[in-house]
Simulated assay, not measured.
Amino acid sequence: MKRQVKKKTERSQLTKFKRILRNTEYHGSHESIKKNELQVKKKRYFKLVNKLFIKYTTNKKIVVHAPVYIDYYNNFNFNKTNHFLNKIKKIVTKENGRVSIDFSQTKLITASAMISFLAETDNLINASKLGRNAISFTHPKVEKVESVLKQIGFYELLKKPTRDTKTFKDVSYWNYASGVSSEPQKASDSMAEIEKKISIKARRKLYKGFSEAMANCVEHAYQNPAQVDDVQTKWWAFAGVNDDTLIVVICDKGIGISKSLPLTRGSELIEKFKNALSLRKLNDSAMIKIASRMGRTSTGKSNRGKGLKDIKSIIDTFNSGHLSIYSNKGCYKYFRREGNLDDIMKEHKTSVCGTITEWSFPLNIGEEED
């Protein structure tokens, strides 16, 4: 809007100078005519320079330095990572520019932050007119960081040639998939390879809980009727088995739990849960906690929409496991160790712009029942 006003003002000034020049040509002195001719030329010159400057800056790549730690587990790193993602988003979407990401300082990338980064990049190149040309990056200096980016499909997403790197045990176990939540069957097919690898080691009850929770997270990721296109209804997931522990991370860039929950459950029910859980206010982290206690969806089917509750019930049943949920500015963590329950809520200054669910379970739990 400001840019349109500025353009209109510039056009008005140029028209004014032209009108003055015409009047002086008939009635003015030679000196006045020369003066007004210079004003018109000057205005035209700056208009041309401005156009060339806009064209130049639009095509020029803006270097954005990735943080040392792309990470959501530490509060400081959480905000640094989100500031980094927001900077890229602003350049690509609002300024129609091109970004070159410099990974030279990056030493560590962790799961939840990486999937958020991957999801944002995927959305941006799909939304930009420049496509994949909107975002490029330099090879990281730290070999393990490069290995992570290769393993989770970042190189493939931006069609950058890969280099040979060492195999890291805590990197190579990750499997990556993505799909569109408006097509549950397609999402299920896309996850088949990941599910196959997990189910080989996972116990039946544990695997069943994971599968149902995954299906619900995918199906109910977006509840906003306005969000109907594939770019906005996509999901991304990592999964793997490391040291006999099943780890799953799933992300969507939807409206977030705090906005979707009132649409599906109603404010009255939310208020009841708020009072029952002794919550002071309904911020993002409080809404995540409420969602993790609810088990009935807007469809009215008792076997649907239990995603978060199903994961919690597995943790309760086997007294083991960890659940972390990031949604917009909120974070909720639920875990049991040796029968002791820990329940943590945290409100951050910056937003993940969507929802990330991460859970892990030891695969040796419940062996006595097999």
Rank of each mutant, 00 (worst) to 15 (best):
S147M: 03
I20P: 05
E156H: 15
V352T: 08
N328E: 03
G354S: 04
N36E: 04
K90F: 12
H27N: 15
N216E: 13
S136L: 02
H139N: 15
Y73R: 07
T297L: 11
N303V: 11
S147V: 00
N133M: 02
E195P: 06
T350L: 14
L118Q: 06
G366Q: 02
S211T: 13
H65L: 08
R304F: 00
N77P: 01
K259L: 07
K60T: 11
T167H: 13
H139V: 12
F335Y: 09
N59S: 05
I356K: 03
G339C: 04
E183K: 15
A177Y: 00
K166D: 08
E95N: 13
V248F: 14
V92L: 05
I270A: 07
C353W: 05
D230V: 15
N133T: 03
F335L: 03
V142R: 12
S182N: 11
L279E: 02
G354P: 05
I344P: 11
P184S: 00
C331R: 13
W236I: 03
H30V: 12
S211H: 06
D343K: 03
N123Y: 07
K61G: 01
Y26S: 13
K333G: 11
M345V: 09
G295Y: 02
R132M: 10
E143R: 06
A276Y: 13
K160G: 05
G97W: 00
K159P: 06
L263G: 04
N50D: 10
F46I: 11
L363Y: 00
L341A: 08
T317Q: 15
Q227M: 15
S298E: 08
N283K: 04
Y326R: 02
G266I: 03
G97C: 02
D230I: 13
K289I: 04
H220Q: 05
K329A: 05
V171T: 09
V218I: 11
G179N: 04
K150P: 03
K349F: 12
W174M: 10
K253D: 04
E212G: 13
K34H: 06
K47W: 00
N133L: 05
L48G: 11
K60H: 10
T57P: 03
F117E: 07
A213Q: 02
N133E: 08
F273R: 04
G97T: 01
M287H: 11
K89D: 14
S12D: 09
V63R: 06
L149S: 09
E271M: 12
Y69H: 12
N242H: 14
L261Y: 01
G330E: 01
K6N: 13
S29M: 09
S29Y: 04
Y332W: 13
A291E: 03
K87W: 01
K160I: 14
R293G: 13
S182I: 06
F210I: 08
I365M: 05
Q4C: 04
E31T: 10
N50E: 15
F84E: 00
R204L: 11
S211K: 12
A221L: 00
A119H: 12
N283L: 01
K306I: 10
L149N: 03
Y334D: 00
R296L: 14
